[in-house]
Nucleic acid binder design. Structure first.
Lengths: 172, 172
DNA sequence: CTTACACCTGTGTCCAAGACACAGGCCAAG
DNA sequence: CTTGGCCTGTGTCTTGGACACAGGTGTAAG
């Protein structure tokens, strides 16, 4: 399981760290220091290659619901949080908005299939992406053309009715 | 001059309006009601095909500096404001940010050539646009591929370690 | 004259997805 | 004990306007 390999990785990095400082620590003891596979925000972030701020953000908007260490108030992320965050990141890669993801998770949390919602949402988002793509393509072409045209033109000082001739003569 | 043709247009529309209500108003009188070619926000917006909010926005951030009618506090946009706004809209079409445009206008207002700044800025913005273009292209391809793959797959109910198989099995 | 309505003002808030800041608490090493 | 790194919650910033709101103005109709 991915989370466990992440845990191993954490232990490895702890071991590596300890060896640097000349101490050998039993992995079982490391595991005990934070009972039953919990991790803190920075470790959670590292495991999935995002910043701690991203983990905090998803916690703030309640997509992640970590436990709380009564002693120090630190948040404890479980394997369930790990899976949720991994899911969130995959969904973001597919262009779903955070709100979409909340809707999808709401279905899943009620043990209902989120798939119809997912299919409906990706159609919408794909349309929007096609739109943005076309706009970005056009903008890019306009800009490229401007750079080319301007390379032939001199600089000019503004006049009463002309602020920058490059921009204003680039009529389209 | 474009502004004057806009003014004519305004007078025409006033005339049209008056005719609808069965009154004929002398254009000279209309012109006098708002001395020396000034216009109010909604008319300014209409002339350049944007919303009044857009004109108010550029006024708020001091790109436009209309005069003020002492009697009623209404803002009076001059031909200079019209030219500035037209310039701003052209520059926005070329991908310049509002901040870029402020920098460009600052140069022009000091009678210095804004062209070197314009050339420098468009290089930056074009790079960013190429970047965004590539990202949007990739996202679009991912999404299209997902839609195709998912059309062959059934809906499923979430399990303990799977929230939505469509998304989670779409590994990349 | 009043009423209705369209327009105007300045100011504040909202959008997305985090990034960054800040004040204050926790914890381990030297 | 101090230092430094990590943690907490909360607030603010980013873009380019869009929208809201409270209150003032202008004008045609009743």
């Amino acid at each position: 399981m991915d989370f466990l390999s992440g845990l191993e990785l954490m232990i490895d990095s702890y071991q590596g760290k300890e060896q640097i400082f000349g101490v050998n620590l039993n992995p079982a003891i490391v595991r005990l220091s934070c009972e039953e596979g919990c991790v803190k925000v920075i470790e959670m972030a590292r495991r999935l290659g995002v910043t701690a701020d991203t983990v905090r953000f998803y916690t703030r908007i309640k997509i992640l619901k970590p436990g709380k260490n009564k002693a120090n108030g630190y948040r404890e992320y479980s394997e369930k949080d790990y899976n949720r965050l991994r899911f969130v990141l995959s969904a973001r890669q597919l262009g779903f908005s955070v709100e979409d993801i909340q809707e999808i998770l709401n279905h899943a949390d009620k043990k209902k299939s989120p798939c119809p919602t997912v299919r409906r949402l990706i159609d919408q988002r794909l349309n929007e992406t096609e739109q943005r793509f076309a706009e970005t393509l056009q903008l890019r072409e306009r800009m490229q053309q401007a750079v080319v045209e301007w390379s032939q033109k001199p600089d000019k000082v503004p006049t009463g009715h002309m602020i920058c001739h490059l921009i204003e003569e680039f009529a389209q």
